[in-house]
Design a protein around this nucleic acid. Sequence first.
DNA 1: TATTGTTATACTCTATAACTATA
DNA 2: TATAGTTATAGAGTATAACAATA
Lengths: 153, 153
Amino acid sequence: MKKPPKPSALEDHLGFWLRYVSNHVSQSFGAKMAGQGISIAEWALLRVLYDSNAVAPSEAAARLGLTRGAVSKLTDKLVAKSFITRKTGEKDRRYQVLSLSSAGRQLVLRLAALADENDAAFFGHLKPAQRAALKKIMQDMVSRFGLAEIPTE
Amino acid sequence: MKKPPKPSALEDHLGFWLRYVSNHVSQSFGAKMAGQGISIAEWALLRVLYDSNAVAPSEAAARLGLTRGAVSKLTDKLVAKSFITRKTGEKDRRYQVLSLSSAGRQLVLRLAALADENDAAFFGHLKPAQRAALKKIMQDMVSRFGLAEIPTE
DNA sequence: TATTGTTATACTCTATAACTATA
DNA sequence: TATAGTTATAGAGTATAACAATA
């Protein structure tokens, strides 16, 4: 009697476990952001603008790995919520200048605190050495494989 | 002069790095599946059916953390591709019985091999002890936080 | 009534590519 | 022509909830 081949199970893969945990961490984070009326993609854009205020949409798109169209829509939403402003460039009127409003700047501080909180809730129980090792492995992989796109999902 | 507060950066969070890597691993895997004409969600359903052939859609939905509606559509697609069959239950005609066709069974073997390949490509460079530690940490988190939904994305 | 599976509808997120205005 | 931003369209994936068949 021939026994059926036994293909690997989902749980045999490290990628499965990584995704499992990562999905939950992100969902939890997404829920915290949603509680503030902000999507994760919006958060990423806000965070970019906090670091270098006055960024053109095309530049933001490049940094976030999104299309200009996607950034255009994110911008619409954030402008509608008064967290950012959008002005036409002075020298070259094709460009726009995106900047955080002061409400936007405050929001980023609040969201960053939530991000810290979320990370602590999931990883706080690990020993510092474990956290460091985990981070190092992930960062190594990013450079080893030349992984490009930043997670915006 | 008051200096602006410095909120944590995206890269300060372990969750960010986990997602960064996980996204790439999954995208790569998804591309391999797509090469076989199968989505990741379809793959997950196929894999469930391989383990216990003759599963009701509602049961599959429960195992995968999807709605019955979602499973209904996945089933449509897989039946159309002749990888699974769908019969009405004999005892209780409300239930259906989903089973792999022999083509489906072969497909699962092929896909599982691709999954192995994908995992090896990303994690093969790690030392066995590192892989084990990584897996352990992830599994610990799953049980520690009672994370329920299996990743189907 | 309760449950299974189906389906109509909607929503979110994103991409592609055509379009407008500016250069 | 070339580039920035916009927008029309589409597609993937999923949920909600109403529905038909069956129990």
